[in-house]
Nucleic acid binder design. Structure first.
Lengths: 222, 222
DNA sequence: TTTATACTTTAGCCGAGGTTGAAATCTGGC
DNA sequence: GCCAGATTTCAACCTCGGCTAAAGTATAAA
């Protein structure tokens, strides 16, 4: 089994490659920045990962996961998201707490543990933030939702997923009364990239900045 | 927070000091042997632990936990035993599987996690092998049970605890139908440290070698 | 009291995964 | 086509927690 550090690199690369619309090539500095380590640390680990064929790497040109590397990344992400859901469902964690705890547990649980919570949870396909849980085989469905910040005035949408980057953000979104499945309508867009005016559940209204709105992913309805 | 390796040393020292009747002084080699590492590795870590006052250490003379060191050891043991029980109760693990999984989890769970499973389990005081679970404050009751191997012919006893040293041993004990609480009588002791003849539940009879019997701890009745 | 033997420590090494500072390379603007 | 600035890599170093080989210390037997 590969080290915990290697697992973290693979997971990070996967997320940059597949879950960030703005990223076209996964560069060294991007990895270093999102893992909060110095760039040379990333270079040396990337070289090790390339040696054991978990990533493809061309010096100065960036990195991408090999098939084997992606498989491991998805396995870790599966652990993470199953754990998040289990912590929420079975242990009563709130959705802003689950990420930090799952982060530590994801590297140590056995396949046995994974299978047992999967079964107890009824073989779920999304985690508490709406992110898809890869199957044991490594299948994961492509998300079709788009950031709330991209909606035009008059469009209605349903919340599908909220970024779990920050517990504060999750707490704020929860305080607003927004949950997965909440329906909303964009009533106005203030000029010069100003905030959106949202109507929620046909009664409440909020003004929401674009930075936050870009972290909330929705499906447009009719 | 101290490293996982340090936590393991403290736990090992605690167990040698407090749970092994045959150990009077915790020597370097004892630590090294029970952690399956080389003796010099133990020496160097012991020196580090002594520097931060988690153990008292006199070169060539052995080691003992300081109050602070014992507190940490008990915290880890509490994690371990709560996890074992949780894995058994909530996830359906058998008693020979829980130790290995808990071993990995014990170092990463938060206080939050600890408290939540403690509550779900109803603030338990023994783990699936009958070992006491320290309280949050670090209180732990002294066991009064003695090894089955010390019983005399004619004595009756109830199984209180089974060593979790080896999954094979636990599986064998389970196959025999012995559980915590099982009542038995010593019918014979074969000469020259030969096996015990046990009558269990007034019907079944087994012959059990002393090596195994010394890993089963019982309370004598009437 | 000496000495063989067992145990412990010292010394020096290794690999993993970080760091910083300097050198190399790439890229976009002139 | 060249050059400035950004990015990447190299080189040298650090800590942690292991290791082996060799030296030091304690102890029990002679």
């Amino acid at each position: 089994m590969i080290s915990q550090a290697m697992q973290d690199y693979l997971k990070t690369i996967y997320k940059l490659q597949n879950e960030r619309a703005d990223v076209v090539v996964v560069s060294n500095s991007l990895i270093a920045e999102s893992m909060r380590i110095a760039a040379p640390s990333a270079t040396s680990m990337i070289k090790k990962l390339a040696e054991i064929h978990l990533v493809e790497y061309t010096p100065y040109r960036g990195v991408s996961l090999s098939e084997a590397g992606e498989k491991i990344a998805l396995e870790i992400i599966r652990h993470h998201r199953l754990l998040e859901l289990y912590l929420a469902e079975a242990l009563g964690y709130s959705w802003d707490e689950v990420d930090a705890e799952a982060e530590k547990l994801e590297h140590v649980i056995s396949e046995e543990f994974e299978d047992r919570i999967d079964e107890i949870l009824g073989f779920p396909t999304i985690d508490p933030h709406g992110a898809p849980i890869p199957s044991r085989r490594g299948d994961i469905y492509k998300r079709t939702s788009l950031p709330l910040s991209q909606l035009r005035v008059g469009q209605c949408a349903i919340v599908q997923e909220v970024s779990d980057q920050s517990p504060e953000l999750l707490r704020y979104v929860e305080d607003l009364g927004l949950k997965l499945g909440t329906r909303m309508e964009v009533q106005e867009r203030a000029p010069f990239n100003g905030p959106l005016l949202l109507r929620v559940d046909a009664e409440k209204q909020y003004s929401m900045g674009l930075e936050l709105a870009s972290q909330i992913f929705v499906a447009i309805v009719e």
